[in-house]
């Protein structure tokens, strides 16, 4: 089974900014992913677009090329995901970004899920019944 690693708002900010106090810690996990990719282990890193909005991370900014170079892909907020995310907002009173993360967790099939986050309680709240490994930075 392949593995999907999701990033929350602070994980994005920590990766994007070399001066962020958690930069090296966040980068450690990406380096582990890179080593596993080199061993042909199916693993990928993604960020829900709602999280990118909350983090203020635009891929069009030249200074923001690093995440793209690390092969961190977007998970867009399509209609089906928006419906699940809206239910999560109603139920758990979390931010749109966290609800988007939760919707992705609940909708992903056939991938082992991990989320890198600074807020494990919120991640567990939005994950519902999805089996998710929560890695705290």
């Amino acid at each position: 089974m392949s593995r999907l690693i999701l990033l929350d708002n602070e994980a994005v900010q920590a990766l994007a900014d070399p001066e962020h106090p958690k930069h090296r810690r966040a980068l450690s996990h990406i380096q582990v992913v890179a080593r596993r990719k080199a061993r042909q282990i199916p693993i990928r890193v993604a960020v829900p677009t709602g999280v990118r909005v909350e983090a203020g991370y635009s891929r069009t900014e030249a200074t923001n090329a690093f995440l793209g170079r690390l092969r961190v892909s977007d998970v867009p907020l399509d209609t089906a995901t928006a419906n699940v995310a809206a239910d999560i907002v109603s139920r758990a009173a979390v931010s749109v970004a966290d609800a988007h993360l939760g919707a992705v967790m609940q909708m992903v099939a056939n991938e082992q899920l991990t989320v890198i986050t600074s807020d494990p309680d919120d991640m567990r709240a939005v994950a519902g019944t999805a089996g998710v490994t929560v890695v705290v930075i």
């Binding site: 070399p18 930069h23 810690r25 450690s28 992913v33 890179a34 080199a38 690093f66 690390l70």
Partner: peptide, 28 residues
Amino acid sequence: ALVMQAALDHHYEQHPQARPSLADLAIA
């Protein structure tokens, strides 16, 4: 895998303090 590692290596050249130690990687 090549692109990802090359991006990391370039980043470490620019920001040596960002390079994780062996212990950091093992913990991660």
